[in-house]
Design a protein around this nucleic acid. Structure first.
Length: 109
DNA sequence: TCAGTGACTGACC
DNA sequence: GGGTCAGCCACTG
């Protein structure tokens, strides 16, 4: 049903990302059937503050870089949240991003 | 309705 | 990995 907006679906996926794992905007967009609309996912994250439990820090770009850290109020919050979950962050980039990558299309098939 | 905006991505270097 | 360019599309005013 389309009772949910595009970003409502995005939140539904993001909330299912397990702790200690990360995914990319493009992966979520692709899972929602809007491949190439990764910007919409990032845009949805921008408004995720209206939702209580959106682990937006577990969503990064396809290179594993914390491009959205600037939207957490303070640039260091995002990396601290990730490190708190056991994810190593160095120079605004997730170490071993490929190993920690969580594909919604594979887990939520 | 139209134009602006953007937490991206792929191509290229 | 990182900068630039162009395409992408849902939402806002």
């Amino acid at each position: 049903m389309r009772n949910e907006s595009f970003f409502e679906k995005v939140y539904d996926v993001v909330k299912q990302i397990p702790a200690g794992r990360v995914t990319s905007y493009g992966a979520i967009a692709e899972y929602l059937g809007s491949r190439g609309s990764a910007r919409m996912v990032g845009w949805a994250m921008n408004k995720s503050h209206i939702h209580p439990d959106i682990p937006a820090h577990r969503v990064v770009n396809r290179k594993g870089m914390l491009t959205g850290k600037n939207h957490f109020g303070s640039p260091n919050i995002m990396s601290e949240l990730l490190e708190n979950e056991g994810i190593k962050v160095q120079n605004d980039r997730i170490i071993e991003f490929e190993k920690l990558f969580w594909d919604p299309g594979r887990h939520l098939h």
